[in-house]
């Protein structure tokens, strides 16, 4: 019982220090990935900045001034946006659920039965005319999150 509480506490405290505010160049690199891979225009993120922790980028509204906010002991800042996985960028399901409806490509439309199977098995064989890489998993008009399409298989990163 006590142990579980401790684990939780740790999880939420991981950002007790302020994440780094990334430069415009770095922000542009991450947003270029979203644009190239999914066709989501960079303008969709106007008014937002990116913050960085060890392996993640977070999306946060641009404040009038960061300085005063940085005096706070924060638990979380913004929305978990994109992860850095070795040399690659990987969109989070959280961010895709919010912005994925703006995408124009690399979208996988599943039937409810297929979605159900993917969620249960975590991977399934799948053939589509897509380039390999991260895809947006959609079903009946709703964005569910992130998958990986590679070698004729679909791998789930759904929460």
């Amino acid at each position: 019982m006590v142990k579980r509480k401790k684990a939780r506490r740790k999880k939420i405290h991981q950002q007790a220090v302020w994440p780094r505010v990334v430069s415009l160049e770095e922000r542009d690199k991450v947003l270029s990935f979203w644009e190239e891979r999914f066709g989501i225009p960079k303008t969709a993120f106007d008014g937002y900045v990116l913050l960085s922790t060890s392996k993640n980028y977070w999306l946060f509204v641009e404040p009038p001034d960061f300085k005063p906010l940085q005096g706070l002991r924060v638990q979380t800042v913004g929305l978990l946006f994109t992860r850095r996985v070795s040399r690659f960028l990987k969109p989070t399901s959280t961010a895709l659920q919010r912005f994925g409806s703006l995408a124009t490509k690399n979208i996988v439309e599943l039937s409810p039965a297929e979605l159900d199977r993917l969620r249960r098995q975590r991977k399934m064989s799948y053939q589509a005319d897509l380039s390999e890489g991260y895809v947006i998993i959609k079903c009946a008009g709703k964005v569910w999150g992130c998958g990986l399409y590679v070698s004729g298989r679909l791998i789930s990163f759904l929460p």
Binding site: R8, I12, Y48, L59, F60, V61, L69, L72, R73, V74, Q75, T76, V77, G78, L79, L80, F81, T94, A95, Q97, R98
Partner: peptide, 19 residues
């Protein structure tokens, strides 16, 4: 606060920080 953080994530809110 853990429940709050989960709700912010669930609703896709990017404009909040938590303390």
């Amino acid at each position: 606060l853990t429940a709050l953080v989960a709700n912010l994530k669930r609703l896709g809110v990017a404009s909040a920080l938590t303390t």
